[in-house]
Design a protein around this nucleic acid. Sequence first.
RNA 1: GAGCCCAUAGCUCAGUUGGCAGAGCAUCUGACUUUUAAUCAGAGGGCCGCUGGUUCGAUCCCAGCUGGGCUCACCA
Length: 552
Amino acid sequence: MGVADPVVRPGPVPHGEGPPHRARGGERRRGARRRHHGVCPEVPARRRRGRGDGGCGVNEAWNDLMRERHRKIEDLRAAGETPYPNDQRVGWTAAAARAAAGTLSPEELAGKAIRVDIAGRVVALRRFGKATFLSLSDRSGRIQGYVKKDTLGDAEYGLFQKVVDSGDLLWLEGTLFITRTGELTVQADRFRVLTKAIRPLPEKWHGLSDVETRYRQRYVDLIVNDEVREIFRRRARIVNFLRDYLSRRDFLEVETPMMQPVAGGATARPFVTHHNTLDMDLYLRVAPELYLKRLLVGGFERVFEINRNFRNEGISTQHNPEFTMIEFYQAYATFTDLMGLTEDMLSSLATALYGSPKFSYQGETVDFTPPWERLTVAQAAARYGGFPEERLADETFLRETAVRLGVPDAAAASQGHLLVGIYEEVAERRIAGPAFVTEYPIEVSPLSRPNGARPRIVDRFELIVRGREIANAFSELNDPVDQRGRFEEQLRRRERGDEEAHFLDEDYLRALEYGMPPAAGEGIGIDRLVMLFTDSPSIREVILFPLLRKEG
RNA sequence: GAGCCCAUAGCUCAGUUGGCAGAGCAUCUGACUUUUAAUCAGAGGGCCGCUGGUUCGAUCCCAGCUGGGCUCACCA
């Protein structure tokens, strides 16, 4: 290697000329780092130790902490070890070791001399010269390891001291015992570095709290913040519960296209992508609805899908451009059947998670004990807006109120849009719930079945919990002629500039013409449900990798 | 898209009425064989987000930009 002292010989630097030589104080160090593209980076002389460390192979951008750790990789190699072996089998987990120890007293445990071998991330190290305690974290939890010189031997213990850092992945084999302070511990007589970490872990006490770093480097967040791991474990549990619940009731799980030639099934702006070979524009789906109902036509009378939808709209604590929904459809059922199913499903889920249908969200109690409140859109608007309910049937009143409340496009909107606009403005966010809001106007529900007695409203409900829409369900429109008329109305809206209006899907209409059984369908926002059940204030806390702008 | 707030060491944060940049943890050196935020002594580590402006001098004041957070708008 031998980069002869690269530290700077800056040529004459014209005064007052721009970077990188603006500040004289910083010049030496900066110069050293910057001036050697593609060559071995500079390592302070006192750290070189003539061992081929810190030389070529070391990334220029690495800081001293990382160079130090890279040096330890060379130390490992010098001791005949590889820093990234993949041949180590692991017999135990932390939880298995705990289970094996059970409630044995320290003496009983010592008597049984249980041998275990575990692997995991070193998340804490407490060194005492000739002995070291460490905390090892694996998929099942944490367990303490104890490594000491007279058990390991001088050479092995010396290597351990020299190369093992917090953040490394380590394998230990030894005997279980309980320390004086009562902690179950693996007293190791063998160890092996399974992966040497170059980057240091965040601080042990405050951990990683910078929200941006937590989302961008979720891997670090998951390493150090146990409660974050717990959120995503719980998310998996929730999804499994729902899948199991529906499967047991004879629903078939299916997967339908995420890339669709026509984006349908929801009022939303889609993302557009392109298939090169077919030279065809495709939309990322905004909903699986129209495909799932094609399956009803096909004879799968109960289907569900758990998957992502994509909506090219705003980002907030409630919205991520891609989000997960479960949608399910049941033939020969109506939206009122789905109210019962939803009450049962979600109260059972709450009970599975909390042992009770009651739980706390952001300091408020949510109670999923059935039956849940039912109220109409007009009742909710009247109650929370302080209007007499009769007046909400009067178009002039609706329009004036909507304009006053700042409902978008209130001047031109239909009566139904005005009512829903007012409801959303004054009522939705104030409904504590769980509540089924019903009697949506037909204009805002182009895929729903009209009510038999009152054709201006549809047989639909939204489930509101803590002011947020958690689910949306309706009896499905299966009259192909009516559906074509609804699509055509959506096209007229689109022509008037409504980018969220539905497209007309000819193939879907063709499917309806073959006959779709009467059915009801429901979509539940998984992310929002998980927020509720993990007490998370932001949707980004329950999505592993939320969308962020490109890193600067 | 708009308003408000934030950006300083690997992490968590102080700070400078504008004058060579600070702490704790982490790292390195030394002591230490039942600790768990181990302890003790010493050392190193900074493009103070980026680009300009003002100034003798900017991490600090001003402007623009980038990224993030919250609220609002849109939406589920």
